[in-house]
Design a binder for these strands. Structure first.
Lengths: 225, 225
DNA sequence: TTATTATAGTGTCATTATAACACTACCAAT
DNA sequence: ATTGGTAGTGTTATAATGACACTATAATAA
């Protein structure tokens, strides 16, 4: 690469960071690792890392999702690129942040790994390295916004789910209660889920109708919540 | 910077590119330059360039807006980071794309500069270098989306403007006619513009009320169009 | 002075979307 | 047969949207 014609050009280092959301214990969790190197050694941080040679950032994120969370093919989208000079004490390090959504059952990380990957509730985050708190907040607002006009919620639900589960997932992420009747009315009118011929039974209660998403691709909807 | 501990790490080069929109001849224009170097020599491209040492991308864009378009302090936001391996024949070059909005009267580039900066109508773009067509399309959809829930239109209008000018600007960007009465009703109900005690006269027609934006900061609105 | 031209400005109504609200249905377990 | 616990269901008032056409005003030309 002969891009260094300009004497002044000096490349920043480039990393990716992943904000991996999941639903846990009826709350929204995000995966954090414990840094094993300086700077911020032993501090919690988003999983991420430097690009390897000729690796596009999207590939790097996929690699990190695989290696650090054991997930593959989950919903992933680029969030924002952070490159303030003071975000990393080592100097100018640019990070392309992504966010991903995974049902918790799909996650396969070993809790005993050296980096101790672990989920934290978004509302109870520890002190974080770099500008990772800011990145998580940014991801959270993007996630909330997208809930309102896309179907990405499918990434957080099992294949078959009840209306209550669906509504609860919305409530957890939006952080507010929704009216059951209005929710059902609106969601069914979108025509993106369909009831299946199965019910979910439980002890001492009326069984609930199960639904599926008709399509499992990310779709933009005109109207939503 | 001792970030190269990992043998594999090899930084991509980092550039910024700016999609500068303006309204021209009752249409939406975007600023393009003519590349004076390989690759894509003599081909039209977005103004942009490599980061200089320790320069955050936001500063680099401001520098480019100043140097290549003569504008300063205009509305600018980060768009997306493009880093496909095949976007640049020189190799892995990551670009952080931004979009900016400027009223055409503020632009002060010299048409005779070696790079021949020039506005092109978005609907009549020439062949473009790299993935710049894709970047412009992405910027255009972002701009259209943001028109619906922010006040960024102020960046494209003079300080004092008529309802017709405002509506026309919306129509140009959205690419469709809007109903005059509904437009006025909605826009006034937002409470973000106010009539001033002046009218705009013209030959052989009824003078039009002039308005101003109450605030000239970018604001998110709950409801819009 | 009158007529013409061009754009500004104004209201209603039907339809649709939203938001608030509470009770009955069903199954399982006791 | 009773109880516990979640599922499921409609109506109504209010607000937002979208469709629609005529009058008002100033400048200019006749």
């Amino acid at each position: 690469m002969n891009v260094n014609k300009t004497k002044l050009y000096y490349p920043p280092a480039v990393t990716v960071d992943a904000v991996i959301f999941t639903i846990q214990e009826n709350d929204l969790g995000v995966l954090l690792i414990e840094r094993s190197n300086e700077p911020f050694k032993n501090c919690r941080a988003l999983p991420g890392g430097f690009l390897v040679k000729n690796e596009p950032s999207a590939d790097a994120v996929a690699r990190i999702l695989k290696d650090k969370a054991g997930i593959k093919g989950v919903y992933t989208e680029q969030l924002y690129t952070f490159d303030n000079l003071n975000r990393d004490p080592r100097g100018h390090i640019l990070t392309v942040a992504y966010f991903a959504l995974s049902r918790s059952s799909a996650l396969k990380f070993k809790k005993n790994e050296k980096e101790h990957p672990q989920f934290f509730l978004v509302k109870k985050l520890p002190t974080l390295a770099f500008d990772h708190k800011k990145i998580i907040n940014y991801a959270l607002s993007r996630l909330r916004a997208k809930l309102e006009y896309t179907n990405i919620i499918y990434s957080l639900l099992p294949d078959e789910f009840t209306m209550s589960q669906l509504q609860k997932t919305y409530e957890i992420i939006l952080g507010k209660k929704l009216d059951k009747r209005n929710f059902i009315k609106k969601f069914l009118s979108l025509g993106i889920i369909k009831p299946i011929s199965k019910k979910l039974s439980g002890p001492r209660r009326r069984p609930a109708q199960l639904y599926r998403f008709i399509s499992k691709k990310s779709v933009e909807l005109k109207k939503f919540f």
